[in-house]
């Protein structure tokens, strides 16, 4: 199976988000970068499928030059090659992003043959549009299952399972080539090993620079939601706090009997 995984570089925000002074961006001066946990699972799934069945794995991102780091991370856990669609750091909206990714896929497929399976995250960590994978699938004329937490391989087909609204599960059986967007819980991603990191440095990285386009959704500014920051009332220190905690549980009516 030939598999492509699409990932997005995002700041690894921790305890709270700081914005730049003009509110246009997250202040990333003191932050590292990562990809969404959903996309980490997509990467892991591609590596596992190729380990089990053979074929090829490729990771792609549209992002600034620094996004090479996320491609190397994916290659460190076993993806074979990578594609960087380099931007000048501007925001690309979902239509523009999907357009650039679709064009890159067409080029790749013309040169190397089709990808049987293209994996996306269900939603990007930062902008959460829930749509880039759907748009790419539509442009390619391939079926798209979203929110998958399990993928079973059949003969020229796959079954993708996702949570149904009622807490149960629903499955889609689709022919390949197909597009699946996945969610964390699909698998438990491995951590990169030191040799894996070293190998990743030597793996192939293809670059190109698509032209920015407007897509109809244009960011004006970012802001933090209004939340009251409380300061927790300390009810006690160590084990001695237990009676006060149980009093509290009683007051809240959850102590039961």
């Amino acid at each position: 199976m030939n598999i492509l995984v699409c990932v997005k570089r995002v700041p690894a925000t921790g305890g709270r988000i700081l914005l730049t002074e003009d509110g246009s961006e997250i202040d990333t001066r003191h932050l590292g970068f990562t990809i969404s946990p959903h996309e980490e699972c997509a990467v892991e799934e591609a590596v596992r499928i190729v380990e089990a069945q053979g074929g090829s794995s490729t990771v792609l991102t549209l992002g600034p030059p620094g996004a090479e780091e996320q491609l190397r991370d994916a290659m460190a856990v076993g993806i074979e090659r990578s594609i960087l669609l380099e931007t000048d750091g501007r925001d690309w909206d979902p239509i523009a992003t999907a357009g650039a990714i679709t064009a890159a896929i067409a080029d790749q497929e013309a040169a190397n043959g089709p990808f049987d399976l293209i994996l996306f995250g269900n939603e990007s960590a930062d902008s959460g549009g829930f749509q880039v994978g759907i748009r790419v699938a539509h442009s390619l004329g391939r079926p798209c299952v979203t929110g998958a937490k399990a993928i079973d391989l059949g003969d020229g087909r796959i079954t993708a399972r996702r949570e149904a609204g009622d807490g149960g599960w629903e499955s889609f059986d689709v022919p390949l080539p197909a597009v699946v967007s996945v969610k964390e819980g699909l698998n438990l991603p491995r951590y990169p090993s030191v040799p894996g990191r070293l190998r990743a440095k030597k793996k192939e990285l293809q670059r190109s620079s698509p032209t920015w386009a407007a897509g109809g959704l244009e960011k004006i500014a970012l802001r933090l939601p209004q939340t009251e920051t409380t300061q927790a009332t300390v009810v006690g220190l160590g084990a001695d706090a237990a009676p006060a905690v149980v009093d509290l549980l009683d007051r809240l009516g959850v102590l039961g009997g």
């Binding site: 939340t227 927790a232 009332t233 300390v234 009810v235 006690g236 160590g238 084990a239 905690v245």
Partner: peptide, 10 residues
């Protein structure tokens, strides 16, 4: 501590 209502330090 900035979002919790109550805390036990320990």
């Amino acid at each position: 501590m900035g979002v919790a209502d109550y805390a036990v330090i320990g």
